[in-house]
């Protein structure tokens, strides 16, 4: 789910990055955006999508040894954080014998095990890109199919700086989303 959070962060400018007046605000903001982009995601807040509004920039504090200046910045930030128990619409990215992987916006490590999709059977194609899961009614899951899934377990991967989730289709109203009337353009 997407949230708008009020966050506080220390932004550090090196002496050569310092500017005066309004330009200083600009320098602090672009450094903040740069920092958030590098950070990508944390376990605490999820994926940092975009800083939206600036609340305040504190007085700069000079560090004695390096001469760099630290600014405490308060701002609002758009984040995406997945939750256990959450139901999302995801896009299938890869299909293997054991199950399929799907992505949901910035969150790209959703896995649905073949045991978590009752009624579906694996069909191997000549090229792995065309592997599918099919059920007896002819419903098909292939690459790029939109699937509504429920996240059942969530894990933070510190090395890759990302969340990983196990999801299931074995619940009411889960599964491939047919082109339904609600205005989703599934071919985009």
């Amino acid at each position: 789910m997407f949230f708008e959070l009020k966050l506080k962060r220390d932004v550090i400018l090196q002496p050569h990055e310092l500017k005066s007046g309004m330009y200083l605000t600009g320098a602090v903001l672009s450094k903040l955006v740069e920092d958030l982009n590098l950070l990508k995601c944390t376990e605490e807040h999820g994926y940092y999508v975009a800083a939206t509004t600036l609340e305040s920039i504190g007085q700069g504090r000079i560090r004695s040894v390096t001469g760099s200046v630290v600014f405490a910045v308060e701002f609002n930030c758009l984040v995406f954080k997945p939750y256990k128990g959450e139901i999302v619409e995801s896009v299938v990215s890869q299909i293997t014998r054991t199950g399929f992987e799907a992505r949901c916006g910035p969150f790209e490590s959703l896995f649905v095990h073949q045991k978590m999709m009752e009624g579906f059977e694996f069909h191997e194609a000549q090229s792995p890109a065309f592997n599918t899961f099919k059920d007896s009614q002819g419903t098909e899951i292939q690459k790029d199919t939109v699937v509504r899934v429920k996240l059942i377990a969530l894990r933070w991967d510190d090395r890759e700086r990302t969340y990983r989730a196990l999801a299931t289709l074995n619940d009411d109203y889960m599964g491939p989303v047919q082109a339904f009337e609600t205005g989703l353009d599934l071919n985009k």
Binding site: C41, Y47, V49, F80, G105, P106, L184, K188
Partner: peptide
């Protein structure tokens, strides 16, 4: 200037918005 997270989010929400 746009991070991967930004681009992927934009792509996703454009596709999955029920109301425009």
């Amino acid at each position: 200037q746009f991070s991967q997270v930004f681009e992927k989010s934009l792509q996703y929400v454009k596709r999955f918005s029920r109301y425009q």
